[in-house]
């Protein structure tokens, strides 16, 4: 169950993610890094709420919207900036990484498949590995509504359920696969319905509510650790920015965006903290200041980095 620390931790976590992204967007505007970024603004409650229940040694395969999953799992934020900047201090040692391919093995961050749906089999394999080695690690695999249609999901969900693999399939349903709305691409009303086909629990939660996400994932993690097998959780959420920076967004209406922006977790959740007595205005304000300072310090550290020599491109092809 969520305690006061959980509530506060979720708020701090979401704020770190959103502030980090805001700072990255400034770097993009300044021309320091490319605009190949899929902003996560709006989806923080899902990314942070789902990742917080994990242990450090659990595995994460994040998806390509925002860095909330990776930041929450423990990738150092200055190194994240460095990856986007193409600096050698990044997790890839200067090879560069944008919204995919950041990794941090010591915190269980296994990276991400650049081809959508490519992470499903790898997540199942990591789950198989945990079971084989007799650990109680679990795997959290994020994906979008669009990627849910890949055949790799079927193969991976089937073996996960068949072999009771400790995998949590976490769908961030934000309503659009780039420009195509879910109603035009998905045969079921809710993606969680597909869990029935694999005889695993499937649930849909309010992805704008970090507590709802946190509770659902905590239950799935507990179940997986105890040998109960996989779960499918669908979090209904929304991205406030385009699919990419510069997306004309002709496929959705201003009204729809307004409706979802009224549910902004970064506006609603701090109010709830105060209303339910988990924090006061002073704590909220102090948290805002300390997070801003943390992000600014990380950005300053990262900006002092340097690009690798050209010879870097030939490193790490083989072990």
């Amino acid at each position: 169950m969520a305690t006061r620390d959980t509530y506060r931790g979720l708020y701090t976590g979401m704020l770190r993610v959103a502030t980090w992204e805001q700072r990255l967007l400034r770097m993009i505007e300044e021309g320091r890094t490319s605009g190949f970024y899929h902003a996560g603004r709006g989806q923080e409650a899902t990314a942070v709420g789902a990742t917080m229940p994990l242990r450090r040694d659990d595995y994460l395969l994040y998806d390509h919207r925002g860095m909330g999953h990776a930041i929450t799992k423990g990738v150092p934020i200055d190194r994240l900036f460095s990856d986007f900047l193409g600096f050698r201090e990044g997790t890839t040692g200067g090879l560069g990484a944008g919204i995919v391919h950041i990794a941090w093995p010591e915190a269980g961050v296994l990276g991400q498949s650049g081809t959508l749906g490519g992470s499903f089999p790898i997540a199942a394999g990591a789950g198989l590995s945990a079971l084989y080695r007799g650990t109680d690690q679990v795997v959290l695999c994020f994906f979008g509504d669009g990627a849910s249609n890949r055949g790799t999901f079927h193969e991976s969900a089937n073996v996960a359920a068949l072999w009771n693999l400790p995998v949590i399939w976490l769908c961030e349903n934000n309503g659009y696969a780039v420009s195509v709305p879910t109603a035009e691409a998905i045969s079921v009303a809710q993606i969680s319905q597909r869990a029935i086909a694999y005889d695993m629990p499937g649930t849909t939660v309010d992805g704008m509510d970090p507590i709802a996400v946190y509770d659902a994932v905590s239950a799935a993690v507990e179940r997986a650790r105890a040998g109960g097998g996989p779960s499918l959780i669908e979090a209904m959420t929304y991205r406030y920015r385009g699919h990419y920076e510069g997306d004309p967004q002709t496929y959705r209406t201003r009204e729809e965006r307004d409706e979802w922006e009224a549910k902004d977790p970064l506006v609603m959740f701090p109010r709830r903290l105060i209303d339910e007595g988990y924090a006061d205005e002073q704590w909220i304000e102090a948290t805002r200041i300390s997070v801003s300072e943390e992000i600014e310090a990380a950005a300053a550290t990262a900006l002092q980095g340097s690009k690798p020599p050209v010879s870097r491109i030939f490193d790490n092809v083989y072990a």
Binding site: L110, P121, S129, T152
Partner: peptide, 14 residues
């Protein structure tokens, strides 16, 4: 897809 991708996932984790 699982067979090879699952093999990659197991290989990445030791």
């Amino acid at each position: 897809n699982f067979l090879v991708g699952g093999g990659v996932g197991a290989a990445l984790t030791g």
